[in-house]
Structure formats: structure tokens, C-alpha cells
Simulated assay, not measured.
Amino acid sequence: MSEPDEAAKGRALSSPLRLRILRMCLHQPRTNKEIADRLGINPASCLHHVRTLVATGFLESQPERRGARGAKEVPYLATRKSWSQHVDDVAPVLIETFVQETAALAPEDISVWRVGLKLNQEHRDDLMGRLRAIVDEFVALPSDPDGEAISLMIAQHRDAAAD
């Protein structure tokens, strides 16, 4: 099977639903039915998205298993390759994914902080580089067996209101 091109990979990651599937399958393999049930979508529609993520290398099928009724089930696990994939104009997709993932959470389950800074390019680059280094350090650690799965989104943007 040939390697999917960059455009196909970008398209695969331009859907909040697909990003949510990747997050669900990050720490625990899940079957198409489990994913569809958790997302509240039709299993056939879910399978289309799962197959797209498998074809682009962002999900991998795991060894088959037997379900409660003896049916064959294929669980899928995220490969983490999406983390280093460039996607054009991804900010709106990431923001929408964040909104969807947090919509049903209690306020105490979300920690958000926001600050306003005035930095030159050198200091902006330094800030974002240092934040990236900290996140990369934790990404490189093995998962804590007793840990709780969390999602982190860090964004910086020009403050048009301050212009």
C-alpha cells in the first residue's frame, strides 16, 4: 500500500469528528461500535471516518477480538502521527473540536486561562518554543497507568481588539 499524500492526510485531519475519534483512541483501543456509541452517530458513518484515519496512518487496527455475543470486533488505536502533521488553516477545526469535546463537561472539569501580552517577535517565538518544549517533554513520557486522560489546547493569536 502506498503512502498517502500530504493533501489526503490534511483532509483527514480537517474534521472535528475525526479529531475526536483520534482522541478517543489515544489511550485505549476502541471498536467502531464503541466509537459510534460514544459519539452518538451511525456506525456506518463512523466506519467511513475510521477507514479514512486508517488509510492515512492516523489509526491502526489492533488484533481482532470477540465481542460479548461472539461477533468479530476490530479495535483501533491512534498512532500519534497526527501530532506532527501539518494541516493548512487548522485553527478553526481545533477550536470547534475543543468546543465539541467540552460541551457536555461540568465547569469544574475544564481549566482555562487567558492573558494579554505585548511581545515582539523574538519574545513570542521564545514563549511558544518554551511551551512547546514543556509539552513535548510530557508527550515523550510513558502514560501513567493510574493517570487520568486529559486534553490540552494552547493557542496564541494577535489581539485585534488592542489595535
Score class of each variant (00 low, 15 high):
L105T: 12
E60P: 08
K81D: 06
G70F: 04
A106P: 10
F58W: 00
R65D: 12
F58Q: 04
T31H: 07
L77F: 07
F58H: 03
A106R: 07
P107V: 09
P43E: 09
R66F: 07
V93C: 05
P75D: 04
E73A: 06
L94G: 01
S61H: 12
R38M: 15
T97F: 03
T52D: 01
G70C: 04
A36S: 13
V74Y: 01
R30K: 15
P43K: 07
D89V: 12
A78N: 06
V54W: 00
V87D: 06
E101V: 05
S45F: 12
V87N: 03
E64H: 09
F58D: 00
V90L: 14
I110M: 04
R69N: 14
F98N: 11
L105A: 11
E108R: 09
S61F: 04
S82L: 09
A104M: 11
T102I: 03
P75M: 01
I35M: 02
V50R: 01
E64Q: 12
L77E: 11
P63H: 12
A36W: 05
G70W: 00
E108I: 09
L47V: 08
I35L: 03
E34N: 04
R38I: 13
K33L: 15
D89H: 13
E60C: 09
D89W: 07
K81M: 02
L47Q: 10
G57V: 04
A44Y: 09
Q62H: 11
E64T: 15
E34D: 14
E108F: 05
E73N: 08
P29E: 10
L53V: 06
A103H: 11
D109A: 11
S84C: 10
N32F: 02
E60V: 11
A71C: 09
V87C: 08
